[in-house]
Amino acid sequence: MLLAVVVKRAAMALLTLAGVAVVVFVLLRVVPGDPVAMMISPGASAADIAALKAHYGLDEPLLIQFWIWIKGVVSGDFGVSITLHRNVAAVLADRLPATLELAAAALVVAVALGGSIAIAGTLMRRTAGEAVIDGLNSIMLAVPDFIWALALVLLFVIAIPILPLTGRIDPVLAEGFHTKFYLAESIVTGRFAVAGNILSHMAMPTLALALPLAAVIVRLLKQSLKEAMVQDYVLLARIKGFRELRLVLQEALRNAVGPTLALTGVQFTFLIGGTVIVERIFAYPGIGNLAIDAVINRDFPLIQGLVLLFGLIFILVNIGVDLTVAALNPRLRHA
């Protein structure tokens, strides 16, 4: 049964990606501005411009351009970045790990922080403590990632300067890596000083991305936990003499976590979208930051590759969430 779901979702995913490919391709060529206009020097002749357009294949009819591109994509060739003069796939492969590590760290922080606060709030239900948590959380729910970014800069760069403002790693330490997963690699190989340096760079962008998601998790999970805590089976467990914390963790959490997981999946795609502006603010070298450069330069092949990559990530996240929700439900597992 689970397999059928996966196959269906994969087919849907391919269709979605095809749609995204068409839309981004057409949009780029319909809206004003093209890469050639961005690179010609003033006073270039019409012939020069035409030659450049021909060089990048932009003189062909739209349909032919699309055909050439999509044929390449299917065989794994995403074209060459106009500004970076490198294969788009290679550029993305270079930059993606930085964003994946950032998004994963933000997700972990959001789940750990949001989960603990939700559990604490559940333990404190009907007390002043719960009111404080609810009040703070409703403020946090209204603050977007880039505001957090600015607040964090004010706090940790200007007021108490303990964190580096920009980058992913101290350049002198960025030697000798075999992969672009700097954080994972430095931890696996036991280079903890390097890992610490990376984490200090990641701290602010991670928090900026994590806090809005944490707020959403607190709100929904606490609500679900409170509903679960009045179920008969929790009452029966209480009568066995279990403590409140154990009741929450052992009895309520697993039954309450479904809606939060599903919503976290959706919100996680927002978080990945948020990397665009947050990576920019902290000059973090991931695909989000790259996307802004690509758009400024009208680097068509790079933008197209990035959009497909973002689309693929969104789809994979959603499938992952659905599978996790299904796996947590014994009724589905043992149907």
Binding site: D232, Y233, I239, G241, N255, N329, P330
Partner: peptide, 23 residues
């Protein structure tokens, strides 16, 4: 809490809601 579950136990009314569905 020390007495409950050791000296006093409950047989509840509704067996369909008395179990944790995921354990």
């Amino acid at each position: 809490r020390g007495i409950l579950g050791r000296d006093i136990a409950l047989v509840p009314q509704d067996p369909s809601t008395a179990f944790n569905p995921s354990r």
